[in-house]
Amino acid sequence: MDKHNLTVLSEFILMGITDRPELQAPLFGLFLIIYVISVVGNLGTIILTKMDSRLQTPMYFFLRHLAITDPGYSTAVGPKMLVNFVVDENTISCYFCATQLVFVIMFITTELFILSAMSYDRYVAICNPLCYTIIMSRGVCSVLVEIPYLYSTFFSLLVTVKIFNLSFCGYNVIRHFYCDSLPLLSLLCSDTHEIKLVIFIFSVFDLISSLLIVLVSYTLIIVSIIKLSSAEGRHKAFSTCGSHLTGVVVFYGTLIFMYLQPKSSHSFDTDKMASIFYTLVIPMLNPLIYSLRNKNVKYALHRTLEKKKRSNLGFRIGPCK
């Protein structure tokens, strides 16, 4: 950040979700509950898939990393948004704003490619089950996760550094409840053609490439399932990818609605509603989608609770003398 930015702007003012005082307390309570469920649910998924020996498969390896990215971007946004409900002036420092933008872009971009990796995993499991353990080896799974983390970190830093190295005007009110790239671009006095082009190219590449992997994988999966002779086999095959397909539709549907809507119907209020959904609601829904619809995760939770109950009972009774 250059001297011009530091002297002219040291902080921003976030407009928040609403300016109606009577809605501040109810919305604070609602979003606090959503955030707590999100954090607890995703942490539970991480712990279960790490501890339970029956969940040491590629599918749950990707699910664990999905449970890392979800609270990653919801935590980048949620706590600050909750604080803004109870303070008089919703200010955010320039440095914290840049940090928030980095983590939001990084975790959301990573989630796009983890979802596509999960779809490829389901394709191999259903269409090529005999070679599944060979194709989806530990090394391959690690690469499919590590590359998105590295790429998304580069993308987020590139966008953030470029935005905050440009000159802001004196107006510092962000028409959003967190620091997002589009509201920040509207505050710039410098020529934004280059940074807009960078964001557009990377965003289109991320969305289309990851979505293409998902569509191709599920097209091949559906073709393979249709060829199955037994109804029981088709049902079992659909059940193995039903949760993931639900999560994909919800996540990609929200992003497509937000970024590909016509300019005539585009508004910051619409952006805020979509942003609330994908930064707070989806991280809460994902543990419910992948856990409540997954028998293995439910059995793992049951086994963990039973083990905990037995250990507590043994501790209370004490050793026999």
Rank of each mutant, 00 (worst) to 15 (best):
I147C: 04
T69E: 08
T110P: 03
F315I: 12
M136R: 06
V198T: 13
A76M: 04
M258E: 14
T91E: 10
G41Q: 00
I174F: 07
L280A: 04
L30E: 05
Y120C: 08
G72R: 05
V248Y: 01
D2A: 14
H193W: 12
A231M: 05
I114F: 15
E306S: 09
C127D: 06
Y218P: 05
G78C: 03
I163E: 02
F107C: 15
M106F: 12
F12H: 05
R64N: 11
F96V: 06
Y259M: 14
L288E: 09
C141E: 06
F155R: 12
N128I: 03
D52G: 04
M136V: 03
L220T: 05
L185Y: 04
L66T: 09
I282Y: 05
N84F: 02
A67L: 02
V145W: 06
A25Y: 09
T69M: 11
G314K: 08
H4E: 15
F31S: 06
K196V: 01
I163R: 01
K227C: 05
Y259V: 11
V214Q: 04
V281R: 05
M59A: 14
I289Q: 09
S116K: 02
N90Q: 07
G242S: 14
V86W: 09
A76I: 07
F268Y: 15
V249Q: 06
F113D: 03
L43R: 03
S203P: 01
D206C: 14
D70P: 00
Y218S: 00
I126L: 08
L63Q: 08
T7K: 12
V104K: 03
K308Y: 12
G314W: 07
E306R: 13
S239G: 03
S209Y: 08
T109S: 11
T254F: 14
M136T: 02
L6E: 12
G233Y: 03
I13D: 06
F251K: 01
Y278F: 15
A125P: 00
D271Y: 04
G247K: 02
M136P: 01
S167N: 15
E111G: 08
M273S: 11
R138N: 15
Q261V: 10
V104L: 10
L43Q: 02
T160L: 06
K162N: 13
